[in-house]
């Protein structure tokens, strides 16, 4: 069975017809938003993290029809007129990204954190990124990147 699903995607109203058994990650990637990555594909790695109503969610465990009426944001929403967002700049400056596959998930989890807690301490950052796995950098650089971004955002730079 297919359902008409209406939601806000990266700030724009979106309407689509989607089968009941389609996962959000496949729906997003199928429409060209390939920034969201399929990692473990089983809810264990966080590479597919998107924001649903400001809350980080695993797109690989979300059925697409269930985002009816919600606000969905993907890594593509971070772009600032072709430039990088504060969190993306943080990952760039602090070398928070190596192979880059986990990075979209980490950035969206960090975005969720900074919206509810603009000035997190190290422990709060660690806790908020606890659903995301990176196999390259070892997390120290990622935590520095989020701290850098929080500082920038605190100064009103985005």
């Amino acid at each position: 069975m297919k359902k008409i699903v209406k939601f806000t995607l990266n700030g724009q109203p979106h309407v689509g017809a989607v089968a009941d058994n389609i996962l959000l990650i496949d729906y997003l990637r199928g429409m060209g938003l390939t920034g969201t990555k399929t990692g473990c594909d089983g809810g264990e790695c966080g590479a597919c993290t998107v924001l649903i109503n400001d809350q980080p969610a695993l797109a690989c465990l979300t059925l697409a029809p269930t985002v009816q009426g919600a606000r969905v944001e993907t890594i593509e929403s971070q772009s600032r007129g072709g430039g990088l967002s504060d969190i993306q700049l943080g990952f760039h400056h602090k070398l928070g990204s190596q192979c880059g596959f986990c990075t979209p998930g980490f950035i969206m989890a960090a975005e969720g954190l900074l919206r509810r807690n603009p000035q997190p301490n190290d422990e709060e950052i660690r806790e908020a990124l606890g659903s995301n796995i990176c196999r390259c950098t070892g997390y120290v650089k990622i935590i520095e990147a989020v701290k850098w971004a929080a500082k920038e955002r605190g100064r009103g730079v985005r």
């Binding site: 809810g43 966080g46 809350q55 969610a57 695993l58 465990l61 606890g130 659903s131 995301n132």
Partner: peptide, 8 residues
Amino acid sequence: AGPTQRAM
């Protein structure tokens, strides 16, 4: 689990 799984 982790925070994202807990929220779901």
